[in-house]
Amino acid sequence: MPNDNHTLELNQKDLDLIEAALHTQQKILSVQSEAGGMGAQERLSALKHLMKRLSRQKSAARSDTAIVNAMPAGQAAADNPPCQGFGVIARNIFC
């Protein structure tokens, strides 16, 4: 089975921009879904799930950051690799 995981490094500004774009997409899909657009309800549902996962991941990242900031600098970097996977999730929704 091939490994379809990809790594994408994003800073907080990038994540905020992506989150804003996802909110805009949610509004568009809501209108399309209410108008009876084909597939809009499925895509809207998938987008809502993605946004919930993103919200949970951001909350966890904030908690991890608080923990990392409390650790000695060398230990924090070694024990806590950067979060990965948001790019994969977003790509699955829009591709």
Rank of each mutant, 00 (worst) to 15 (best):
K48V: 10
P72F: 08
Q57T: 13
A35V: 07
H49W: 04
G36F: 15
V68P: 00
R62Y: 05
K27N: 05
A20Y: 08
A61K: 01
K13L: 12
S63F: 09
R43W: 00
L44V: 02
A21N: 10
A60H: 06
L22N: 04
D16E: 10
G85S: 14
A21S: 09
A20P: 01
K48P: 00
R62M: 10
K13V: 11
T24L: 10
D79Q: 06
L54Q: 03
Q32Y: 13
G85N: 09
M71D: 05
D16Y: 04
Q84K: 12
K13R: 04
L17Y: 03
G37P: 02
S30I: 02
D79A: 12
G85V: 13
A20F: 13
S33Y: 03
K58V: 07
D16Q: 15
A35Q: 15
Q41P: 01
S45F: 07
L22F: 05
R53H: 12
L47C: 03
G36A: 14
L29T: 00
R62I: 04
T24M: 09
L17V: 09
S45E: 10
G39Y: 03
D14S: 15
A77G: 10
A73G: 02
K48Q: 13
Q57D: 13
P81Q: 15
A35P: 02
D64F: 07
T24G: 06
P81F: 09
G36C: 08
T24E: 09
D14R: 04
S33N: 08
F86P: 01
A35C: 14
A77R: 13
Q75V: 12
P82K: 14
Q41G: 00
S55I: 00
E42T: 11
K13S: 12
S30M: 07
L22R: 01
K48H: 04
S45W: 04
S59P: 02
M51T: 03
P81L: 15
A76F: 15
V88E: 11
A76Y: 06
A76M: 10
A40E: 02
P82E: 13
Q84M: 07
E34F: 06
V88L: 08
L54Y: 04
L17N: 04
S59W: 03
E19W: 00
G74D: 07
P82Y: 06
L44D: 01
A70P: 02
L22K: 00
Q75W: 09
Q75N: 11
N69F: 06
A70M: 15
L17T: 07
A70H: 07
S59T: 12
L50G: 01
A21R: 14
G87T: 05
Q84I: 05
S33Q: 10
Q57L: 06
R53M: 14
M38E: 08
A78D: 05
A70K: 12
K27S: 11
Q25Y: 11
